[in-house]
């Protein structure tokens, strides 16, 4: 009778709550990709997420599956314990660059080194978003932030850390890829990569992390388009997208 055909619908793994992230923020896109993947893999009832401290601390408002918070930087070890308690469940943590690359550096390194069979989604937007745009370990050289008003000077602040390359050396790490979500093509690609990182866990491959270069227009003081251009330009020049490690 009806000629209507559903060509798109909100993933079951999203709640009805509209995203509250800033305009152009990468989190909304990546949250939705994860929800779509969870639907597609049919794991909504068996997945347990760990949210970070930072803007994405509210991730649990948007995902309709089990999620716990974790103290700042500790998400990978909270995820480790959940996975050890429920080895049959899919466990992932979602962390920003302040959370993962600064205060949680020990946690991510040792979780990676232990080769925990979990999935990590690492959002790199080169600053501390939630606290108002301070310098992060990932901020680019010269980047102006609220705590580097004259730009990141390596003499004072050191160099931006390439976390994925750092983790690549650990035997326990099986899959690392860096993606961006600046246009339709890169979003489709990012989804494929994130899905693979979850599939790896389900197939028992081992520790997999996807680093997503994400924009933070509000703190970068740019509009969303300029922000995406910045990712496509100088950010992905320093943080090159592509496979960093993939152990077959």
């Amino acid at each position: 009778m009806s000629t209507e055909k559903t060509i798109y619908k909100k993933p079951t793994s999203l709640t009805d709550r509209p995203f509250t992230y800033c305009w152009g923020c990468g989190h909304s896109t990546i949250h939705k990709l994860i929800a779509e993947i969870v639907d597609e893999l049919g794991i909504r009832e068996t997945i347990i997420g760990v949210a970070p401290v930072g803007c994405a601390v509210f991730a649990y408002d948007f995902w309709n599956f089990d999620v716990t918070e974790a103290a700042h930087g500790r998400a990978p070890v909270v995820a480790t314990a959940i996975k050890r308690v429920h080895p049959g469940k899919t466990v992932f943590c979602y962390q920003g660059d302040g959370d993962l690359a600064s205060i949680g550096m020990a946690e991510i390194i040792h979780t990676a080194n232990r080769g925990e069979n979990i999935t990590v989604i690492f959002i790199n937007n080169t600053n501390y978003g939630m606290t108002g745009g301070q310098l992060a370990p990932t901020s680019l050289i010269g980047q102006v932030t609220t705590t580097s008003p004259n730009g990141r000077d390596v003499k004072n602040y050191g160099y931006p850390i390439r976390v994925s390359e750092l983790l690549a050396q650990f035997e326990g790490v099986k899959y690392l890829e860096r993606v961006k979500v600046t246009d339709a093509v890169s979003v489709i690609k990012a989804k494929k990569v994130i899905k693979k990182a979850f599939m790896n866990q389900i197939n028992g491959v081992g520790f997999s992390m996807v680093e997503v270069l994400a924009s933070c227009p509000a703190n970068w003081r740019k509009d969303p388009i300029e922000s995406n251009e910045m990712i496509d330009g100088e950010i992905s020049k320093y943080y090159q997208v592509g496979v960093i490690k993939d152990v077959k």
Binding site: I48, R74, V78, A81, R84, V85
Partner: peptide, 26 residues
């Protein structure tokens, strides 16, 4: 059960957080 030698006390206590959040006695 699970024994993990954590890499710091921050890590061990937060692992316990995760384990009890998952329903285990930890």
């Amino acid at each position: 059960g699970t024994f993990i030698q954590a890499e710091s006390e921050l890590i061990s206590v937060n692992m316990v957080f995760g384990a009890v959040a998952a329903g285990a006695r930890a």
